[in-house]
Structures are given as structure tokens and as C-alpha cells.
């Protein structure tokens, strides 16, 4: 009896060991690589922001919070800050309105070609931001772009430098490209949310003679408020990240009068053009904390009691 018992225990601990080994085999490589290529660099962003490093030779000098003091008195940075806020606010508002509008239109219409529209509207989302940026540069091109040609045909004067080259319109040109790309993505999310709303509610509203327009604000909006809140947080984070690529390609110099320079293009230039790595990382820390705070604030501001009918 005792013999059997030890045998069993031995087998048990062996399988226990195998189990542990398997868990380790599955997780350790991923954890190590994750630590090397994500955790370590992310910590480094914070760490390097306390140093002054002015060349690739990587000599660094601890300067405490100096980089952040520079940041606060950097007038160029505050212009970049305003530009970034402009992009976040304008792109978010226009995209949400258009996405909700098309989602509502497609959900209500019951058209049999609904999947077709969904496929088409979503399509820009799978294209590379590089392709979209390049494409819109061509559209705005003063000599061979279709926008300029159309304006000329309609008798609208286009300045020699084109829409993208003008201080008043350059940022709107980038907004147009960003909205063009994003509408379909959010529309698909909103359609899914709208499909989840019970049809009965609308039937009752119809019987009571409520217009479709009123129904949208009385039924649809409150019931999908949660998903709208989530997408606002997405918007803040993705606008900061995506405007980086658009601006970097469409207006590499930061646009006329620096009108289009955004957070990450400014950070990237400080790092790779000015070799001012410490300052660049201070900017990185600021941008990260700012986007985090903004997401939290917007989450708090949009908090309402969840409606369920």
C-alpha cells in the first residue's frame, strides 16, 4: 500500500513538473522579448527624459527636470500643443458625426445593398497611412491634382502653392485625409451597436408618431452612449498617433508657419534631426501622460447613468 502511494506521489510530482515546464515554455520567451522590446524601451523613455544627450555617442548628463523646464518655456512646443488639440477635436467631431450619420442611415434603411456600402466605406481603413498621405498630396497638388482642377473649373482661384501649402488651409487638408480614412471604421462599430438595439422600441415610437430624427436622439443615442464613450478615447489616442504619419509625410517641414506640426512629429525631429534625445523623451513623457489624462477626463465628462430599456 505504502509502495503504491509513493509511486503515485512520484508520478504526480512528475506531471506537476511537466505542467510547470509547459507553462514556462509557453510564457517565458514571450515575456523576455516583451521585456526587451517594449517594457525596457518604455521605461527608457521616462529614464532618458532626465538626461541631456546631444549626440549618438550616447554621452549623457543627468539634468533632473531641466528638460521639462525647457518644455514649459518652449513657445514652439505650445504652438504644437494647440495644433494637436485642433486635430484631436476637429477630427473626432467630424468623424463621429459622419460615422453616426451613415451608421443610422444604413441601419434604418434596410437596403439590400447595405453590405456593399459597409465594405466600401470601410475600405480606406485597410490602406497604408503612407498611401493615403501620398494620395491626398496628389489630390491637392497645385498643377496635377483633381481638387485644383475642379476649383479652376468652378472658377475658384487656387494660390500657387496649393491648398496644402497655404497656412490657412493646410491643416484642414490633413483633417480631410484623416476623416476620409476613419469614418468607415467607426461606422462599422456604431452599426454593430445599433443592430443590438431592440426593434420593438422603434416600432412603439413609430406608433406614437415620433419622427426618425427624434428617435435617433431619444432611443439610439442614449442606448449606444457607452460605445460612443469608448470610441472617444480611441479617437484621442489614435489621432495623436496617426497625425504623426500624416503630418510627417504630407507636410514634412511642419507645414506653412508650423501650422501642422503635431506632438510626435515634433518629438521625432528633436530626436533625429536635432539629436536632442533627452528633450525628445521629455516630450514623449509629456505626450504619454497628456493622452492618458485626456482619455480619463473625457471618460469622466461623458459618464452618464447607463440606460437600459
Amino acid at each position: 500500500m505504502a509502495k503504491v502511494n509513493t509511486k503515485l506521489a512520484g508520478k504526480f510530482s512528475k506531471s506537476k513538473f511537466q505542467r510547470k515546464l509547459f507553462i514556462a515554455e509557453c510564457t517565458v520567451p514571450a515575456i523576455i522579448l516583451f521585456a526587451v522590446f517594449m517594457v525596457y524601451p518604455a521605461i527608457n523613455v521616462f529614464y532618458m527624459s532626465f538626461f541631456k544627450m546631444s549626440s549618438l555617442s550616447l554621452e549623457k548628463k543627468f539634468v533632473g527636470l531641466d528638460n521639462f523646464k525647457v518644455l514649459i518655456s518652449d513657445t514652439k512646443f505650445w504652438q504644437v500643443f494647440r495644433n494637436q488639440i485642433f486635430f484631436i477635436v476637429v477630427v473626432t467631431i467630424i468623424t463621429i458625426i459622419l460615422a453616426l450619420f451613415f451608421a443610422a442611415l444604413l441601419t434604418n434603411s434596410n437596403l439590400k445593398e447595405k453590405p456593399f456600402y459597409q465594405t466600401v466605406f470601410f475600405f480606406p481603413n485597410v490602406l497604408s497611412l503612407v498611401v493615403i498621405s501620398t494620395l491626398f498630396i496628389q489630390i491637392y497638388d497645385p498643377s496635377k491634382g483633381i481638387l485644383t482642377a475642379t476649383c479652376n473649373a468652378l472658377g475658384i482661384q487656387v494660390a500657387e502653392q496649393g491648398w496644402l501649402g497655404m497656412a490657412t488651409s493646410s491643416r484642414w487638408c490633413i483633417v480631410a485625409a484623416m476623416v476620409w480614412q476613419a469614418v468607415g471604421y467607426y461606422m462599422v462599430m456604431y452599426i454593430a451597436a445599433m443592430d443590438g438595439i431592440s426593434k420593438d422600441l422603434y416600432e412603439v415610437a413609430d406608433l406614437e408618431g415620433m419622427s426618425k430624427f427624434k428617435q435617433f436622439f431619444a432611443i439610439t443615442m442614449p442606448l449606444m452612449w457607452e460605445i460612443i464613450r469608448v470610441t472617444i478615447v480611441f479617437f484621442i489616442i489614435s489621432t495623436i498617433n496617426m497625425s504623426f504619419v500624416y503630418v510627417k509625410i504630407m507636410t514634412p517641414t511642419g507645414g506653412p508657419d508650423g501650422k501642422t506640426e503635431v506632438f510626435l512629429t515634433y518629438m521625432y525631429k528633436q530626436a533625429f534631426t536635432n539629436s536632442n534625445f533627452g528633450y525628445a523623451m521629455a516630450l514623449g513623457v509629456f505626450i504619454f501622460l497628456f493622452s492618458f489624462a485626456l482619455a480619463l477626463i473625457s471618460d469622466k465628462l461623458t459618464q452618464k447613468e447607463t440606460v437600459e430599456y
Binding site: 510564457t27 514571450a30 515575456i31 516583451f34 522590446f37 517594449m38 517594457v39 525596457y40 524601451p41 518604455a42 527608457n44 523613455v45 532618458m48 549618438l56 550616447l58 489616442i237 498617433n241 504623426f244 510626435l264 518629438m267 521625432y268 530626436a271 533625429f272 534625445f277 525628445a280 523623451m281 514623449g284 505626450i287 504619454f288 492618458f292
Partner: peptide
Amino acid sequence: LARPISLLFMSGLFVSQNYIVVPIFLSLNK
């Protein structure tokens, strides 16, 4: 460790490639 490990990876959702590109470049060079 199941939960700590999944939380570790979840925290990565907040880290964008755009921030860490600079330290990755510097570390690789180093």
C-alpha cells in the same frame, strides 16, 4: 502568475510604437 502575466501584456496596450521607436533605435545602436 497567470493573472500578473496577462496584466503585464495588457499594460502594453498603452505603449505605442511611436514613443518607443527612439529608445529602441538608441539601444540597438548601443
